[in-house]
């Protein structure tokens, strides 16, 4: 029963406890992100369905979305102007941002644990995500 006097074991136990705390906070962060994203999408949907419920829809042929709905700035502009499409797209953008927020939080969490190796791993994942959202038009 002298396990508890073993410093290596104690450190492992502390790391496990911290990991667990981090996971719980992360899960709450994710849920809050998804719920707020859903609320914004619903607000946009009410405007959209109220405006022209009897219009015809056709998604058979692909003709890329208008420029404005294809980037963070354009979506923000359209949403602030109160356009239904812009508000719905802003909600979807918030949804895409929730896993990114989770990764940002993980950078700090690993730093707090003094785990430099995993801070580096997490920063690599974060840069791929940010590149996708902000930089992918460079080779699109």
């Amino acid at each position: 029963m002298n396990d508890y006097l073993n410093p290596a074991l104690l450190r492992d136990k502390l790391q496990e406890w911290l990991d667990r705390r981090i996971e719980i906070v992360l899960a709450q962060l994710l849920r809050a992100g998804v719920l707020s994203a859903a609320l914004v999408v619903i607000a946009g949907a009410v405007l959209y369905l109220g405006a022209h419920p009897r219009a015809h829809v056709d998604y058979r042929t692909f003709h890329a979305e208008p420029e404005q709905l294809r980037g963070v700035h354009g979506v923000l502009d359209a949403a602030l102007q109160g356009q239904a499409m812009g508000i719905m797209q802003l909600g979807l953008l918030l949804l895409i941002a929730t896993p990114i927020a989770r990764v940002v939080f993980s950078v700090f969490a690993f730093a707090l644990e003094g785990d430099r190796m995993y801070v580096v791993f997490t920063l690599i994942v974060l840069s791929v995500l940010l590149y996708s959202l902000f930089g992918s038009f460079l080779i699109a």
């Binding site: 890329a64 979807l92 995500l129 959202l133 992918s136 038009f137």
Partner: peptide, 23 residues
């Protein structure tokens, strides 16, 4: 979720995400 977010940015920029359908 993290994996999907990595390609979602590219999809958005390409105009594959239609808000009225994705909603």
């Amino acid at each position: 979720g993290v994996t999907a977010a990595a390609s979602a940015g590219v999809y958005l920029t390409r105009g594959y995400i239609d808000p009225a359908l994705a909603m």
